[in-house]
C-alpha cells in the first residue's frame, strides 16, 4: 500500500497522578507532563514496522487539538513517520467529530490503512476507530495484538474478553492498537534533529468539517471515593482470622 495514516493524541502522561480541580471544572492539566497517548505510540510503531517490511511507502501522523500537539507530532516524526498533519482546534473534540475529521483526511490522502490507539488514556472512551470505520464504511479490527498485511487483506489477532480472536479484513480498513501489539522504539537524538526538517502541515478544523455534532456535555467533575485505609496483619494466621471476621471464608 502507499500510505498509512496514524493518529497521535496529546494526553496527560500515564505516570501522572491525575487530580480533579478544586472547583470541579475539570482535571488539573496546568504544568502537567504531556505525552503521546501510549496506545497511539504503539499504533505508530506498527505502521513503521509495516513500512520497514516494504509493505507501505509513507507514514503520515495526524493529531487533532491545540498547537502544542506539534510536540507529539515531532516525536512521531523522530520515531520515523514521514510527515505530519495537525488539525488545529481550541475546542474539545468529541470522538464522533474526531472520526469525521479523520474521514476528511482519508478522502484527501487515500491511505490503505489507518491505525489508531484503542483508547485515549485521558477520557478512556475507546470509540474513535470504530466510529471512523463506520463512517468510512470499511472494516474495523479493534484491540489488535497482531497484524499481518497480505496484499489486499489483513489478518488481525484481537484481544477480546474470551481470549484471542482472529479476523480477516479487506483493505482499506481501520485497526486499533492494544498494548501487546508491539513495544515502541526509543527515539534517538539524531532522529530528533532529522525530524525538524520533516513536513508538518497545520490546518484548521473548519477546513475539513464545518457542521457541528450534538455533543455530550460535561457538567461537573469529581474525585472518586477513596477506599478507607485497611489493617496490616502480621502473618498468615492473622490474615485468615481477618478474612473470617469479614465473613469471607
Amino acid at each position: 500500500m502507499e500510505k498509512i495514516l496514524v493518529g497521535l493524541k496529546r494526553v496527560v502522561d500515564y505516570n501522572v497522578r491525575v487530580r480533579v480541580r478544586p472547583d470541579n471544572s475539570g482535571v488539573e492539566t496546568d504544568g502537567v507532563k504531556m505525552s503521546i497517548n501510549p496506545f497511539d505510540e504503539i499504533a505508530l510503531e506498527e505502521a513503521l514496522r509495516i513500512k520497514e517490511r516494504g509493505q507501505a511507502q509513507e507514514i503520515i501522523v495526524v493529531s487533532i487539538g491545540a498547537p502544542e500537539a506539534q510536540q507529539q507530532l515531532r516525536t512521531g516524526l523522530a520515531m520515523g513517520a514521514d510527515r505530519a498533519i495537525l488539525v488545529e482546534t481550541a475546542e474539545a473534540v468529541s470522538p464522533l467529530m474526531t472520526a469525521k475529521l479523520f474521514l476528511a483526511l482519508i478522502q484527501r490522502e487515500k491511505p490503505g490503512l489507518v491505525i489508531l490507539g484503542k483508547q485515549g488514556i485521558d477520557h478512556d472512551n475507546n470509540q474513535t476507530g470504530q466510529m471512523l470505520s463506520a463512517l468510512w464504511d470499511r472494516p474495523q479490527a479493534t484491540f489488535a495484538s497482531k497484524l499481518e498485511i497480505n496484499g489486499e487483506t489483513a489478518r488481525v489477532t484481537r484481544e477480546v474478553d474470551a481470549g484471542l480472536e482472529v479476523n480477516e479484513i479487506d483493505l482499506p480498513a481501520v485497526v486499533t492498537a492494544d498494548l501487546r501489539l508491539n513495544e515502541p522504539r526509543y527515539v534517538k537524538l539524531p532522529d530528533i534533529m532529522k525530524a525538524k526538517n520533516k513536513p508538518l502541515d497545520v490546518i484548521t478544523r473548519d477546513e475539513l468539517v464545518t457542521a457541528a455534532t450534538a455533543d455530550i456535555q460535561p457538567v461537573t467533575y469529581e474525585a472518586p471515593t477513596e477506599r478507607e485505609k485497611g489493617v496490616m496483619v502480621e502473618d498468615v494466621a492473622g490474615l485468615v482470622t481477618a478474612l473470617k471476621d469479614k465473613g469471607l471464608l
Binding site: V20, P218, T220, A223
Partner: peptide, 8 residues
C-alpha cells in the same frame, strides 16, 4: 483518567 476522575 483510569478512574481518577468521575465526570457527570
Amino acid at each position: 483518567y483510569a478512574g481518577n476522575a468521575i465526570v457527570t
